[in-house]
Structures are given as C-alpha cells and as structure tokens.
Amino acid sequence: MSASKMFSVLLLVHLLLLAPSSSIEPISTAAFIGVTTAVTSLVTYYTGAKPHFAVFCYMWECCAEGGNYIGLNEDQLEKDLKETLFGQHLVHKIVVKAIKNFVKKPNPSKALALSFHGWSGTGKNFVSNMIVKNLYKQGLNSIFVHYFVATKHFPHADHVQKYKDDLQKWIQGNVSLCQRSLFVFDEMDKMHPGLIDAIKPFLDFHIVLDNVNYRKSIFIFLSNAGGMKINHITMEFWKEGKDRESIRMVDVEPFLQMGAFNEKTSGFWHASLIDKHLVDFFVPFLPLEQRHVRMCINAEIEARRLEFTSSEEKERIIDSVLDEMTYFPHLERIFASMGCKAVSAKLDVHI
C-alpha cells in the first residue's frame, strides 16, 4: 500500500475513533457498532494484520498488547493512594491488589467489577480516576475509558429499555476496539432499577460473546448507597474505643451487598449482577475524621505549591478551613459530613 493511501486510512480511522469519545451519550450509539466494524475491517483489509499496527500506534493511542498506551503502573498507584487518599485502609487493601492481579492474568475468567460505596467526599471518584491515570497513558483522555453518570445519561424512567439497548451496543462497540476497556458508572444510587442488568452478559463467565471477548474489561460502579450503614459501623467502632483500622471487609461488605440489592431507590435493586455474584468486590469508603480532612487540606496546599510567611500562618489557614466544615455527631464533631469534597473551594476563600 502506498504511503498516501496508508495516511488516508489512518486519518479516517483516527477521525472515526474520536467521534464517540466527544460524548458518552449512549443515545447516539446505534450507529457506532457499524462504525466499529467498518473501521476494524478497513484497517485489517489494508494491512493484512491486526488493526493495532506500528504506524497507527506511533501516531495515535491504540490497544496493542504490550504497547505504550495501556499498562498498570503498580508502584505509582500504590504511591498515589498512600500519599493522597486518607483514612481508607480497606480501599488501600483491596483496590491495588484487585487491579494488579486482574491485569496480570493473560486470560481472566470474567471482567473485573468493583463497586465503591460511601458518602460523598470520601474518595470514590478520586480512586477511580487514580486507577485510570495509572492504567492508561492518556489517563482520563483515553479513548478506552468511558464514564456514565446516571442523572445525565439515563435521566428518563420511561426510556429505560432504549437506554439498555444503547448501552449494550456502546459497550460491544468499544470492547470490539479494545478488550482492555474501562467503564465507570457514577451515581448508581440514582440509576433506574433494572437498567444496569443490561451489562450482565458482559460481566458473566462467557469466553466469547458474539465474537467479542469481554473478560479483560473493567467495570467500576460508584454509589452513595450503603453510606449510612458504613457510617453506623464506623461510629460503633469509635464508641467502643476501637481503632478504625481494625474494621475488616467482613464487617462491612455483606451489608453493602445485601443493602444494594434490597434498596429500592438504588440502581442495584434486585439486580442480577448481585444475585449472580458478578460484582467482585463491594468496597466501603469510611467517613473521614477531622484528622483526615486536615491531611486533605495539607495535600491540597502542597499540590498548589502555596507558600506562607510562617508555619503558624499555614496552620491558621488549615484550622480555619476545618472549622467551616460540618461534622457528625453534632456535639462530638468527629466525622466530616462531606469528607474532603469542599476542601478546595473553602481553601480558595482563605488564601
């Protein structure tokens, strides 16, 4: 094939690949499955090989096994969690190990499914972004990473069947392009019941489904559901004088699984994903104490490289931000109601 024709093919492929990444609206995905097939066939026809060829991978992000764009930076992920995620020993224990062991398997038995639970501001989105950053060279800009927000992408209860159909086509199209695709479903507690079961075939123990292998994909669910139970358990440990680090997965995970399945307002209500045990880990994010929020403020200051005239001035700023946060129980002021979510905005005011 001539150089000019090769460039034309690459340009067409690049434009077609970029099209769905500009918006993750599942409504417009009916045509995407056809585009995916056309792109794959076109590149295969011109190269006589896989669509992940050297020139394409040099110029644009591709999904080549052992390539430069996808690969877990395990040490950096552990370092990021240690230095920027506070008060979440169970998250530290589960997430790195689950991602590391899954990515290392050449032929996993099923796609990895992680469900993050806890109140707002405890780090669910933060950790999912951290996983993305350390698994994909392009991070959140990777065309193989896909975010769905329940209230934005699935707002209407009377459109659930259409959402389910479009969601299946979207996932099939994207995994056809890259088996190592990652999908994040945010606001699971606001998702219409029954909708998430559309992805059950992709999480099940199928070797191949319609000529597509989904077993290397990763699905992450983010939910506030179960937050009250997590808070109650953490509070009981505090009342009994027990260290929060002594809380184990077995103390929390069964309640999260059962609660998500039985909570009528949750997207997991009576979901076959739970009934068939297709979610691998229900990861609890504990409520943050004042000391953890202090760490968040200090980390934000360091990240911004803010300078102060003295250490006393820095501590005064940190104390001022802490004082403006809301806590529970009201009298004891132990746990931050919003975790670290408001830290950045409140710091803006005081600097």
Rank of each mutant, 00 (worst) to 15 (best):
F185A: 04
C63H: 00
G339C: 11
G123E: 08
V95R: 06
H159P: 00
R291H: 11
L112G: 01
K93T: 10
V132H: 02
H159Y: 12
T44F: 04
Y58H: 08
I334C: 04
K93N: 13
C296H: 12
F328I: 12
V252C: 05
K239Y: 13
L15C: 14
I247M: 07
N125C: 07
G123N: 10
T151Y: 07
H156W: 11
M295R: 14
S272D: 14
H270K: 15
S41F: 08
H153R: 03
I301Q: 03
R305I: 04
K110T: 04
V343D: 10
K314W: 03
H292V: 03
F205P: 00
S217V: 05
T29L: 14
P201E: 08
I99V: 13
K242H: 10
M59T: 04
A157D: 13
S344C: 09
F202M: 14
E313W: 01
S128F: 10
F148Y: 15
F268C: 09
V321H: 03
I297G: 03
F116A: 00
K50A: 13
E313R: 06
E315T: 08
M258L: 15
K200D: 07
Q168G: 09
A271D: 06
A3W: 10
Y45W: 10
I318A: 02
V103P: 01
D251K: 04
S246N: 10
Q161P: 00
I207V: 15
S22A: 13
D186G: 03
L167M: 09
V9K: 04
E263C: 12
G67K: 07
I171A: 06
G34C: 08
E187N: 08
L182H: 02
K104A: 12
H92E: 15
V13G: 12
L195P: 03
A111R: 00
E236Q: 13
L167F: 06
F148V: 07
D251I: 05
V283K: 01
S344I: 09
E324V: 09
K5A: 11
S344Q: 14
K169C: 05
K105M: 08
I351L: 15
I207F: 12
V35I: 15
A111S: 13
W269P: 04
S266V: 10
I230L: 05
L81S: 03
V279K: 00
L12V: 12
G139R: 09
Y45L: 13
K137N: 05
K162Y: 12
L347A: 09
Q168P: 02
R244Q: 04
F221V: 02
F183Y: 03
T84A: 07
K216Q: 12
F205Q: 11
S344Y: 11
L17S: 11
V293A: 08
E302L: 10
D251L: 06
A38K: 09
T40Y: 01
V252T: 07
P254M: 12
Q138Y: 15
S2W: 09
S320W: 00
S310V: 11
K190S: 13
V208E: 15
N101I: 01
V132G: 01
S344L: 07
N73F: 07
S266I: 11
T326R: 14
F116D: 00
H206G: 01
L286W: 02
F202H: 08
S120Q: 15
H330D: 15
D186M: 04
R244L: 12
E245Q: 13
I301M: 02
K242E: 08
G48E: 05
L10Q: 05
V349N: 06
C62T: 06
S181D: 02
F102H: 12
A64E: 05
